[in-house]
């Protein structure tokens, strides 16, 4: 087994490291163990609009990142661990067993009564604390797993709560399940102590462990991959070909607002605003200005704010309107 030190606490850096490792050509299994600043991680073919409360993420400075592996959206922070295995020379047939065996054995060594579900999740007492996903590239498989140790479950719930909407898009949907933190079973350990023990327990599964230190040339190549793919908003937000959203809400004292929105690869193609709200707003003019912009709160907010400062809507603020659009 080869252990490579992770690239800090940004998911995009570590995704780029994994991708780079599929090109590096190590002939042994590579293992990474990392944590992130608060991040919402989308699966490769998920629709950010359907899975993420983008307004909440923007206001709370949560990073939105996209993996190259499949599966659903997860929330990660410094209290949850991410593990990655990069295995060379694999056949195309899907296999989770060899990776999950290492992690299950390591967690069992730590005294945790873990079980594996049919969806390749890890559970204790029927509650999920780990999800797993993979992608294949350059005859390698990249296996990702997440482990909740002391994650902020309240923030997770808020960030991943998206109001029901009429939404038409071809996408992979998340499966929401009851989750738990492993710290409930290991209360005396800090997150750092748990990470150190987990790393050692994984090493104990391998015959021999070699540490590989990234050179400055390696880091340069990894940063280039990050800029091209994982930090590129088109990759993060533009994976869904077309999404049609219909949302409506009655604002007390403000009236009914209805929004019909078409988003194409992350760009707002068309928005139609109707309702019985009170305002002298040039609605058609605002619709024209918004069309063509990237569909993200940070992009839409200043435009909307400027228009609503000139011609307010009675009892509806910019943030309330954004919450309806992105929440």
């Amino acid at each position: 087994m080869i252990f490579v030190q992770s690239m800090g606490h940004q998911a995009a850096d570590n995704f780029a490291l994994e991708y780079w490792l599929t090109k590096k050509g190590f002939d042994d299994l590579v293992f990474l163990l990392w944590t992130t600043d608060p991040t919402i991680m989308l699966g490769k073919y998920q629709d950010a609009l359907a899975e993420v409360n983008l307004e909440y993420a923007d206001l709370h400075h949560l990073t939105v990142a996209r993996r190259l592996s499949g599966g659903g959206t997860i929330f990660t922070d410094r209290g949850s661990y991410q593990y990655s295995f990069i295995k060379p020379s694999v056949k195309q047939t899907i296999d989770f067993d060899s990776f999950l065996k290492i992690i299950c054995n390591a967690l069992t060594e730590l005294g945790l009564p873990v079980k594996r579900s049919s969806r390749n999740d890890l559970t204790i007492n029927g509650r999920k604390f780990s999800g797993n996903a993979q992608y294949n590239r350059n005859d390698c498989v990249v296996h990702h797993g997440s482990l909740l140790f002391d994650a902020n479950i309240d923030e997770m719930t808020a960030a991943l709560h998206v109001d029901p909407m009429k939404l038409k898009a071809k996408k992979i949907s998340s499966v929401h399940q009851r989750v738990l933190n492993l710290r409930n079973f290991l209360p005396s350990l800090s997150s750092d102590e748990f990470g150190a023990k987990l790393k050692q327990a994984v090493f104990n599964q391998a015959g021999k462990v070699v540490n590989y230190s990234l050179t400055s040339a390696d880091q340069g190549e990894i940063q280039a991959i990050k800029a091209r793919i994982f930090a590129n908003p088109v990759f993060v937000y533009g994976q869904t070909p077309r999404t049609a959203i219909m949302k409506e809400k009655y604002f007390h004292g403000g009236g009914l607002v209805k929004l019909a929105v078409n988003v194409d690869h992350g760009y707002l193609k068309q928005i139609h605003i109707t309702g019985d709200f009170f305002s002298n707003l040039d609605v058609r003019g605002l619709e024209k200005v918004l069309a063509g912009k990237m569909f993200q709160p940070a992009i839409i907010r200043p435009v909307l704010d400027q228009w609503l400062q000139k011609t307010p809507i009675q009892n509806i603020t910019t943030e309330q309107a954004l919450d309806l659009l992105f929440g």
Partner: peptide, 10 residues
């Protein structure tokens, strides 16, 4: 394609 949380190039 994607199946069972795995992305595969064919």
């Amino acid at each position: 394609v994607e199946t069972e949380k795995v992305i595969s190039e064919v």
